[in-house]
Design a protein around this nucleic acid. Structure first.
Length: 258
DNA sequence: GCCAACGTTGGC
DNA sequence: GCCAACGTTGGC
């Protein structure tokens, strides 16, 4: 399963195209309202196959992950294992995060997974950051606390970089989109009775006047630089990473200089 | 548990 | 579209 799945394999019957981008949303996740929610994010892709109708409605999707097979447990351990665990939330200590989404159209399981900072800014309800299908990324999602802030990063596009900020408004809840065969990041290995994946809900906070590009981030990531230990630079494939307070401030400083 | 093969992410 | 980096799987 290539990440891009390209075509539509099956079309979801239920939902033809959903929204703009990425995932769709569905409100099921818990959150309140139905409306919009769902969204995007990227994680890995998954596969699609097997449709088990368990899903509940269409859900949203995002990226998926590799689901693997069997060993569920093993997998989970793995999860934990590599999971980059998140920093523990120290009491009183505030953590910052970086979440990646793709601002350009791309089909995943037949669904366009595009989701940009502008898409988030247009939302009127908390947006579920769904589709994460990598344990390390998921573990970081689970470590997020309400009120914490995160950077919105545009990946797999013309100008990769941090384009704005958002706030975690709801801590992790099960990512039900994983059970929807029509969702972009459907994961047949996850069951409603034992959900493997999680979402957090976020809300838009700001859009930078100009992106802080990946190129700039790397320049600040050199030895001795303010981003020398930044997780996203060290683990380029991680779609949900941790950001220290110093890193957060260094990026904002660059943004302000623009 | 180690580690090689595999498969995905994501920049270019 | 290519391909390097690296996370995940699965045999041993």
């Amino acid at each position: 399963m290539p990440k891009r799945k390209s075509a539509p394999a099956e079309e979801p019957e239920g939902e033809p195209a959903r929204r703009r981008s990425v995932r769709l949303q569905k409100p099921e996740d818990a959150t309140p309202k139905p409306g919009d929610a769902g969204a995007r994010k990227r994680v890995k892709a998954t596969k699609k196959e097997a449709p088990e109708p368990e899903a509940e409605e269409p859900a949203a999707a995002k990226k998926a992950a590799p689901a693997k097979s069997k060993t569920t447990k093993a997998a989970e351990d793995a999860t934990t294992t590599n999971g980059t665990a998140a920093p523990e939330g120290e009491p009183g200590q505030r953590n910052y995060w970086l979440l990646k989404a793709e601002p350009e159209s791309r089909l995943e399981n037949g669904v366009d997974v595009k989701f940009s900072i502008d898409d988030l800014a247009a939302r009127t309800e908390p947006e579920p950051w769904d589709g994460i299908r990598a344990y390390a990324a998921r573990n970081n999602l689970r470590a997020m606390k309400k009120g914490e802030l995160a950077f919105f990063y545009h990946s797999n596009c013309k100008e990769p970089g941090i384009v704005g900020t958002m706030e975690i408004v709801r801590e992790h809840t099960p990512d039900l989109s994983a059970h929807n065969p029509a969702a972009p990041y459907y994961d047949p290995k996850s069951s409603p009775s034992d959900p493997k994946w999680s979402v957090v809900h976020v809300k838009f906070r700001s859009k930078f006047p100009a992106p802080v590009t990946l190129k700039q981030l790397r320049e600040m990531g050199g030895a001795g630089g303010p981003l020398a230990n930044m997780q996203m630079l060290k683990q380029s494939r991680l779609s949900v990473s941790r950001v220290s307070e110093g890193e957060w401030e260094a990026v904002l400083k660059v943004m302000e200089g623009k």
